[in-house]
Simulated scan of single mutants.
Amino acid sequence: MKFYEDGKIPVIPNMYFIYGDGGTGKTSLVSQFVGHKLLFSFDLSSNVLIGNKDVDVVIFEHQDAPNVQGLVEQMIMRAIGNPKYQVIVLDNVTALQNLVLANINDSKDNRQNYQALQLWFRGLGTILKESGKTIYATAHQIDNGADGMNNDGRFAADMNEKTFNAFTGLFDLVGRIYLKDGKRMIDMDPEKGNHAKNRIDERKLIEADELIKSKGEK
Protein backbone atom coordinates (compact mmCIF):
# COMPACT_ATOMS: atom_id res chain seq x y z
CA MET A 1 0.00 0.00 0.00
CA LYS A 2 1.21 3.48 -0.90
CA PHE A 3 -0.06 6.78 0.47
CA TYR A 4 0.17 10.06 -1.48
CA GLU A 5 -0.60 13.38 0.18
CA ASP A 6 -2.31 16.35 -1.47
CA GLY A 7 -3.07 14.50 -4.69
CA LYS A 8 0.63 14.16 -5.52
CA ILE A 9 0.11 10.91 -7.38
CA PRO A 10 2.94 10.07 -9.79
CA VAL A 11 2.15 10.04 -13.49
CA ILE A 12 1.92 6.42 -14.68
CA PRO A 13 2.69 5.64 -18.34
CA ASN A 14 -0.28 4.47 -20.37
CA MET A 15 -1.25 0.90 -21.21
CA TYR A 16 -2.65 0.06 -24.67
CA PHE A 17 -4.49 -3.09 -25.78
CA ILE A 18 -5.34 -3.53 -29.46
CA TYR A 19 -7.11 -6.55 -30.96
CA GLY A 20 -8.10 -7.44 -34.50
CA ASP A 21 -7.84 -9.91 -37.35
CA GLY A 22 -4.51 -11.14 -38.61
CA GLY A 23 -2.94 -8.83 -41.16
CA THR A 24 -4.49 -5.63 -39.81
CA GLY A 25 -1.14 -4.34 -38.56
CA LYS A 26 -1.34 -4.82 -34.79
CA THR A 27 2.35 -5.57 -34.43
CA SER A 28 3.49 -2.73 -36.69
CA LEU A 29 1.87 -0.19 -34.34
CA VAL A 30 4.86 -0.78 -32.05
CA SER A 31 6.86 1.69 -34.16
CA GLN A 32 4.65 4.58 -32.96
CA PHE A 33 5.80 4.26 -29.36
CA VAL A 34 8.70 6.48 -28.27
CA GLY A 35 11.72 4.84 -26.69
CA HIS A 36 13.43 1.48 -26.84
CA LYS A 37 11.05 -1.47 -26.80
CA LEU A 38 11.24 -5.06 -25.62
CA LEU A 39 8.72 -7.19 -27.49
CA PHE A 40 7.60 -10.62 -26.28
CA SER A 41 6.43 -12.64 -29.28
CA PHE A 42 4.08 -15.52 -28.48
CA ASP A 43 2.87 -16.27 -32.01
CA LEU A 44 6.06 -15.83 -34.10
CA SER A 45 4.59 -12.84 -35.97
CA SER A 46 7.40 -10.35 -35.35
CA ASN A 47 8.93 -10.40 -38.86
CA VAL A 48 7.37 -7.02 -39.58
CA LEU A 49 9.84 -5.52 -37.08
CA ILE A 50 12.99 -6.85 -38.76
CA GLY A 51 15.51 -4.03 -39.06
CA ASN A 52 13.87 -1.85 -36.39
CA LYS A 53 16.81 -0.77 -34.23
CA ASP A 54 14.51 0.44 -31.44
CA VAL A 55 13.02 -3.01 -30.81
CA ASP A 56 14.52 -6.04 -29.07
CA VAL A 57 12.51 -9.24 -29.52
CA VAL A 58 12.09 -12.25 -27.23
CA ILE A 59 10.54 -15.14 -29.16
CA PHE A 60 8.87 -17.89 -27.15
CA GLU A 61 9.25 -21.23 -28.89
CA HIS A 62 7.57 -24.62 -28.55
CA GLN A 63 10.02 -25.87 -25.94
CA ASP A 64 9.24 -22.86 -23.73
CA ALA A 65 5.53 -23.69 -23.47
CA PRO A 66 5.62 -25.83 -20.28
CA ASN A 67 7.33 -23.02 -18.35
CA VAL A 68 5.84 -20.01 -20.08
CA GLN A 69 4.36 -18.37 -16.95
CA GLY A 70 7.65 -18.36 -15.07
CA LEU A 71 9.61 -17.29 -18.14
CA VAL A 72 7.25 -14.40 -18.87
CA GLU A 73 7.33 -13.17 -15.29
CA GLN A 74 11.12 -13.47 -15.13
CA MET A 75 11.73 -11.66 -18.41
CA ILE A 76 9.24 -8.89 -17.65
CA MET A 77 10.83 -8.24 -14.25
CA ARG A 78 14.21 -8.00 -15.98
CA ALA A 79 12.78 -5.53 -18.50
CA ILE A 80 11.23 -3.44 -15.73
CA GLY A 81 14.59 -3.21 -13.99
CA ASN A 82 16.46 -2.34 -17.18
CA PRO A 83 16.54 1.41 -17.92
CA LYS A 84 17.24 0.60 -21.57
CA TYR A 85 13.55 -0.20 -22.10
CA GLN A 86 10.78 2.39 -22.00
CA VAL A 87 8.13 0.18 -23.65
CA ILE A 88 7.13 -3.44 -23.04
CA VAL A 89 5.12 -5.21 -25.74
CA LEU A 90 3.12 -8.46 -25.44
CA ASP A 91 2.36 -9.85 -28.89
CA ASN A 92 0.00 -11.83 -28.97
CA VAL A 93 -1.94 -12.26 -25.70
CA THR A 94 -4.39 -14.72 -27.29
CA ALA A 95 -1.51 -17.10 -27.88
CA LEU A 96 -0.14 -16.48 -24.39
CA GLN A 97 -3.53 -17.23 -22.85
CA ASN A 98 -3.72 -20.56 -24.66
CA LEU A 99 -0.24 -21.53 -23.51
CA VAL A 100 -1.00 -20.66 -19.89
CA LEU A 101 -4.35 -22.46 -19.94
CA ALA A 102 -2.71 -25.61 -21.27
CA ASN A 103 -0.28 -25.54 -18.35
CA ILE A 104 -2.92 -25.13 -15.65
CA ASN A 105 -5.51 -27.40 -17.23
CA ASP A 106 -4.91 -30.13 -14.66
CA SER A 107 -8.11 -29.93 -12.63
CA LYS A 108 -11.24 -31.92 -13.30
CA ASP A 109 -13.17 -28.79 -12.32
CA ASN A 110 -12.89 -26.55 -15.39
CA ARG A 111 -13.98 -23.56 -13.33
CA GLN A 112 -10.85 -23.85 -11.18
CA ASN A 113 -8.68 -23.86 -14.29
CA TYR A 114 -10.23 -20.65 -15.59
CA GLN A 115 -10.08 -19.04 -12.15
CA ALA A 116 -6.36 -19.77 -12.05
CA LEU A 117 -6.03 -18.32 -15.56
CA GLN A 118 -7.84 -15.15 -14.54
CA LEU A 119 -5.75 -14.73 -11.40
CA TRP A 120 -2.49 -15.14 -13.31
CA PHE A 121 -3.44 -12.55 -15.90
CA ARG A 122 -4.69 -10.18 -13.21
CA GLY A 123 -1.32 -10.51 -11.48
CA LEU A 124 0.52 -9.96 -14.75
CA GLY A 125 -1.54 -6.87 -15.48
CA THR A 126 -0.79 -5.48 -12.02
CA ILE A 127 2.95 -6.00 -12.50
CA LEU A 128 2.78 -4.18 -15.84
CA LYS A 129 0.70 -1.35 -14.39
CA GLU A 130 3.21 -0.78 -11.61
CA SER A 131 6.22 -1.12 -13.90
CA GLY A 132 6.65 2.55 -14.78
CA LYS A 133 6.86 1.51 -18.44
CA THR A 134 4.54 2.12 -21.37
CA ILE A 135 2.72 -1.15 -22.13
CA TYR A 136 1.37 -2.32 -25.47
CA ALA A 137 -0.46 -5.64 -25.86
CA THR A 138 -2.18 -7.24 -28.86
CA ALA A 139 -4.72 -10.03 -29.31
CA HIS A 140 -6.69 -11.73 -32.05
CA GLN A 141 -10.41 -11.01 -32.39
CA ILE A 142 -13.49 -13.18 -32.60
CA ASP A 143 -16.50 -12.35 -34.75
CA ASN A 144 -19.77 -13.17 -32.99
CA GLY A 145 -21.80 -12.47 -36.13
CA ALA A 146 -23.96 -9.52 -37.05
CA ASP A 147 -26.98 -8.88 -34.84
CA GLY A 148 -29.65 -6.82 -36.58
CA MET A 149 -28.78 -4.05 -39.03
CA ASN A 150 -25.38 -3.05 -37.65
CA ASN A 151 -22.21 -4.53 -36.13
CA ASP A 152 -22.72 -3.29 -32.55
CA GLY A 153 -21.37 -5.83 -30.09
CA ARG A 154 -20.20 -8.10 -32.86
CA PHE A 155 -16.46 -8.15 -32.16
CA ALA A 156 -14.43 -9.10 -29.10
CA ALA A 157 -10.88 -9.96 -28.20
CA ASP A 158 -10.18 -13.68 -28.58
CA MET A 159 -9.82 -14.35 -24.87
CA ASN A 160 -11.84 -15.89 -22.10
CA GLU A 161 -14.24 -13.10 -21.11
CA LYS A 162 -13.35 -12.98 -17.41
CA THR A 163 -9.65 -13.30 -18.16
CA PHE A 164 -9.93 -10.40 -20.60
CA ASN A 165 -11.68 -8.27 -17.99
CA ALA A 166 -9.14 -9.18 -15.30
CA PHE A 167 -6.25 -8.23 -17.56
CA THR A 168 -7.51 -5.20 -19.49
CA GLY A 169 -9.30 -3.62 -16.54
CA LEU A 170 -5.92 -2.07 -15.79
CA PHE A 171 -5.40 -0.74 -19.33
CA ASP A 172 -6.07 2.86 -20.32
CA LEU A 173 -7.01 2.15 -23.93
CA VAL A 174 -8.66 -0.87 -25.52
CA GLY A 175 -9.44 -0.75 -29.22
CA ARG A 176 -10.28 -2.86 -32.24
CA ILE A 177 -8.18 -2.41 -35.37
CA TYR A 178 -9.78 -3.12 -38.73
CA LEU A 179 -9.53 -2.23 -42.42
CA LYS A 180 -12.07 0.03 -44.13
CA ASP A 181 -11.78 1.61 -47.58
CA GLY A 182 -8.07 0.86 -47.63
CA LYS A 183 -7.43 2.52 -44.27
CA ARG A 184 -6.57 0.97 -40.94
CA MET A 185 -8.95 2.21 -38.26
CA ILE A 186 -9.10 1.74 -34.49
CA ASP A 187 -12.50 1.77 -32.76
CA MET A 188 -12.38 2.79 -29.09
CA ASP A 189 -16.08 3.52 -28.58
CA PRO A 190 -17.62 1.38 -25.80
CA GLU A 191 -21.12 2.43 -26.81
CA LYS A 192 -20.86 0.25 -29.92
CA GLY A 193 -20.86 -2.80 -27.68
CA ASN A 194 -17.47 -4.11 -28.74
CA HIS A 195 -14.52 -4.42 -26.37
CA ALA A 196 -13.35 -0.80 -26.30
CA LYS A 197 -12.47 2.14 -24.06
CA ASN A 198 -10.26 5.22 -24.06
CA ARG A 199 -9.34 6.84 -20.74
CA ILE A 200 -6.46 8.81 -22.28
CA ASP A 201 -8.35 11.37 -24.36
CA GLU A 202 -11.75 11.95 -25.99
CA ARG A 203 -11.13 10.13 -29.27
CA LYS A 204 -13.45 7.24 -30.14
CA LEU A 205 -12.43 6.43 -33.72
CA ILE A 206 -9.02 7.09 -35.22
CA GLU A 207 -6.77 6.05 -38.06
CA ALA A 208 -4.33 3.46 -36.76
CA ASP A 209 -1.33 5.65 -37.52
CA GLU A 210 -2.64 8.15 -34.98
CA LEU A 211 -2.83 5.80 -32.01
CA ILE A 212 -0.11 7.75 -30.22
CA LYS A 213 0.05 10.97 -32.25
CA SER A 214 -3.23 12.75 -32.98
CA LYS A 215 -3.85 15.02 -35.96
CA GLY A 216 -3.65 18.17 -33.88
CA GLU A 217 -0.29 17.23 -32.38
CA LYS A 218 2.84 18.73 -33.90
Rank of each mutant, 00 (worst) to 15 (best):
V57K: 07
I76D: 07
M159V: 11
G123S: 08
P13K: 01
A65K: 12
S28G: 06
L170C: 02
N165D: 14
L90W: 03
E210L: 00
L90D: 02
R154G: 13
G153Q: 05
L29S: 10
F42H: 06
R78S: 15
V93A: 09
P13A: 01
D152W: 02
G216A: 03
F164S: 08
T168A: 13
R184Y: 09
V174E: 09
N198T: 05
V174S: 03
L29R: 07
L39W: 02
P10A: 04
R184I: 10
Q69I: 05
R203P: 00
D143K: 05
L101H: 10
D43S: 15
T163F: 01
D172R: 03
V11Y: 00
E210V: 00
I200D: 12
G51Q: 10
G169K: 03
G182A: 08
K215V: 09
L49G: 09
T134Y: 07
S214V: 04
P190E: 05
G175Q: 04
A137V: 14
A95R: 12
E5W: 01
Y178R: 13
L96E: 03
S46V: 00
S45V: 05
I127W: 01
H62G: 10
G123C: 01
T126Y: 09
V68E: 08
Y19F: 12
I186Y: 06
R199G: 06
D189H: 07
L117I: 07
I12Y: 03
L205C: 10
S107R: 11
I177V: 15
R184H: 15
I50H: 10
K129T: 03
Q118F: 01
I104Y: 01
I206N: 11
V57F: 02
P190A: 08
T138A: 11
P83L: 00
Q63S: 15
G175V: 03
F171G: 13
G132T: 11
A157D: 11
Q115Y: 05
N198E: 09
K53P: 09
R154I: 09
E130S: 13
L211F: 01
K197E: 08
Q86I: 01
G22L: 00
N160E: 15
Y85M: 06
D209C: 09
Q86Y: 00
L44K: 14
V55C: 15
L44N: 14
Q69V: 06
V68H: 06
Q86S: 12
Y16A: 04
T24Y: 01
S31E: 14
N92W: 00
G125H: 01
V34H: 13
I50T: 14
G169L: 00
F155V: 07
D43A: 15
A95F: 02
A79E: 05
D158E: 14
G81N: 11
A208Q: 05
K215M: 04
D152Y: 11
A139K: 08
N150I: 08
I18L: 00
V48Y: 08
K133N: 07
